[in-house]
């Protein structure tokens, strides 16, 4: 299991589009479980509605936890997505 804490840079936080992008990326790795810890909640990153339910806003810290096949590579990929603001 590997983890990394990142900061949300998207101005509107993890709204629909970034949540959707994230879920799409996570689903591409079905053998690696990805969870997010934020605002005292733990949510599965492959479910866009769960991600949004954590109400993650701009500037919030999010711990990404990856567990499974290629976990380090998946973690790096997801962390990079957060850092680039999901292309926004």
């Amino acid at each position: 299991m590997v983890s990394k804490t990142v900061k949300v840079v998207n101005e509107q936080g993890m709204h629909m589009r970034p949540a959707g992008e994230l879920a799409k990326a996570v689903k591409a790795h079905p053998d690696c479980e990805v969870t997010l810890n934020a605002n005292g909640k733990t949510v599965k990153a492959k479910a866009p509605m769960q991600i949004m339910s954590a109400c993650i806003k701009c500037g919030n810290e999010v711990e990404i936890v990856c567990n499974g096949a290629d976990e380090q590579a998946v973690l790096d990929e997801i962390a990079a997505m957060f850092e680039s603001g999901f292309g926004e």
Binding site: M16, R17, A19, G20, A47, Q50
Partner: peptide
């Protein structure tokens, strides 16, 4: 248009 792609994803949402 992205909203409709996301709607598709929501339909696939595990919890839902």
């Amino acid at each position: 248009a992205a909203i409709f792609e996301i709607h598709q994803m929501m339909l696939d949402d595990e919890d839902y």
